[in-house]
Write a protein that binds this DNA or RNA. Structure first.
Lengths: 205, 205
DNA sequence: CAAAAACTGAACTGATCGGTTTACAATGAG
DNA sequence: CTCATTGTAAACCGATCAGTTCAGTTTTTG
């Protein structure tokens, strides 16, 4: 009967999420007023509140959608086939691209900002975001192919290192709005550096 | 005539800064109301506004004081004397201790949170905080003593790596309020890991 | 002591915000 | 067509907040 599997409740649901996403990511949680979100979404405030009980629930919905998207986009299986060095570079590059993107920076900023007064949010973000990513990396690092080249005893610790290496001065400057532009060359160079350091740490003795 | 070198303007100046520090670091910038700050400082709101033109200026004053304190506390020269490995460990340990402390986390959180709507703050924090620290580390890494043991061509890049290595999963969990407790052993272990990786990357060929 | 400077407490302004309500219009399925 | 669902616009509520004002008190200073 229904073309869509489930129209959540009404036709405007997606508009609301999209509008909220826009405003939240550019203004933060406190900075985003519900009136502005409703206007941006092209929806009345009453409609918005018929979908979500309050502002926090709306924010959580946006966060979940965003993390889902990122998770899906990451980790195309194809790269597992490549040479380990190439695969690591690809992995570092795509992770850096996300971390440095407007979306990545915004969502991280907002979650860190609100974590104290809204702990459920911090935890949700950590688990659907960085923690999941780290597990994926650890999974790859446990592969026999990697085991041939590197001597990794604790894959989670190694994955932590790998991700640490991606979060450097570049990202700090972005988070703090010191410099807002980053070239693809800079990113690729940074990815080189990540791989070099990672292999230096874990190469076979 | 005056016992103190300079009483800035009035007697209550320090009270105001201290009170503001308390509230800002625990509640964030938006979350801290000026009335609450004044009450915490034991000062009338009128007095507070006689020292600072507005809430942002007050926050900047707190930030500057905080970064000054941390800068002064860091980098005791004594550690330069030690064995390089020990010195690096000491450096990593004290940096980690600060990054994981309530103060360190709070100030970082607030600055990241407000950087977008208050860019001057982000820049000020970056420069008096992480950037200065990185320069200090780079300075030490340029030392002949270090040069004897490690092969560092670009000290700033190396310092960036060193600091990256300090900002791992542990700190992420703290920032996002996933886990609020960290033992000294965990920190010391993390410092070991920092040093091991750093030396692996830069040891002489 | 006397005058100037610093401070107080409380009321007040003007604005914003999250969330609710109400009276009404558009939509869409049977 | 009919009627329930879904949506709208705007007023409204109660609360909070940054910043000001002012009449009066305390502290400092000379």
């Amino acid at each position: 009967m229904n073309m869509q599997a489930q129209t959540r409740k009404g036709r405007k649901f997606d508009q609301v999420i999209d509008g909220a996403r826009n405003i939240f990511l550019s203004q933060g949680f406190e900075g985003a007023s519900v009136d502005v979100i409703a206007r941006q979404a092209g929806v009345s405030k009453a409609t918005l509140y018929s979908y979500f009980p309050d502002k926090q629930a709306l924010f959580m919905a946006v966060l979940n959608q965003e993390c889902d998207l990122q998770r899906r986009a990451q980790m195309d299986i194809e790269f597992l086939q490549r040479d380990v060095r190439d695969a690591l570079h690809h992995l570092a590059y795509s992770m850096l691209e996300f971390l440095m993107s407007d979306e990545g920076v915004s969502i991280f900023r907002v979650c860190v900002a609100e974590a104290q007064r809204f702990p459920k949010l911090g935890r949700a973000f950590y688990e659907t975001g960085p923690s999941t990513a780290m597990s994926h990396v650890a999974g790859y690092l446990s592969t026999p192919k990697v085991g041939n080249m590197l001597d990794i005893d604790d894959p989670m610790k190694a994955a932590d290192l790998f991700m640490k290496l991606c979060r450097g001065d570049l990202m700090l400057r972005r988070l703090l709005c010191v410099s807002n532009e980053t070239t693809h060359e800079e990113v690729s160079e940074a990815a080189d550096e990540v791989v070099a350091t990672f292999i230096a740490r874990y190469r076979k003795a």
